[in-house]
Amino acid sequence: MSITASVRTDDFDAAVELSALEALGGGAVASFTGIVRGEGDLLTLHLDHYPAMTQMQVERIAADAMARWPLLGIRIVHRVGTLRPGDRIVFVGTASRHRKAALESCAFLIDWLKSHAPFWKKESFADGRESWVEAKAEDDAKASEWLSPTP
C-alpha cells in the first residue's frame, strides 16, 4: 500500500505518476488531471492554501479512500501559486486489482479534495478584475453523495 501526496508550485508529469501506479502490480490504474479552464479573459488563476494543514489534510483524504476501497496505491499532486489557462492544477491517481475500486476511489478523491482540502482560487482577468472563486453548492453535494451508504 503506497500513498504519496505532494503540494507544490512546479508542474508535474502525469506519465511519471501513472508509471509509478502501474508498477504496483494491480490490474487497474485510474486517474484524473485537472486543467485551468481559459474562460472569458482569464489571465491567471492563483491558488492560495494553508501550508501547515494542506499536506496533512490531503494525506487524511487519501487515508479515507484507502479505508473505503481495496487499493494498492494513491498518488495526489496539487499545485499552488500562480497558474495560467491550460496549466495542470491537480492529479489524482489510484491503483487497485480491479477497475471498479480504481475508478470509484479516483472520483471520490477529486470530489473530496474540492470540498475538504484548504485551497482557495483567485481569478485575475485581462481588464484588471480579480475575484475569489465562490464555492459551488454542487461541489458540496457531490462530496456528500459519498457519505450515503452505497446501494
Binding site: 501547515a52 474540492k114 484548504p118 461541489d139
Partner: peptide
C-alpha cells in the same frame, strides 16, 4: 489544523484559521 463547525469551543487550541469555503481541486 482540523476543520470544525463554528460552534466549536476553542478550549486549549493554539491555532485558529478563518477562511471562506474551500475551492481547490
Amino acid at each position: 489544523q482540523r476543520f470544525v463547525p463554528l460552534d466549536t469551543v476553542i478550549g486549549d487550541a493554539r491555532e485558529l484559521a478563518l477562511f471562506p469555503p474551500v475551492t481547490g481541486g
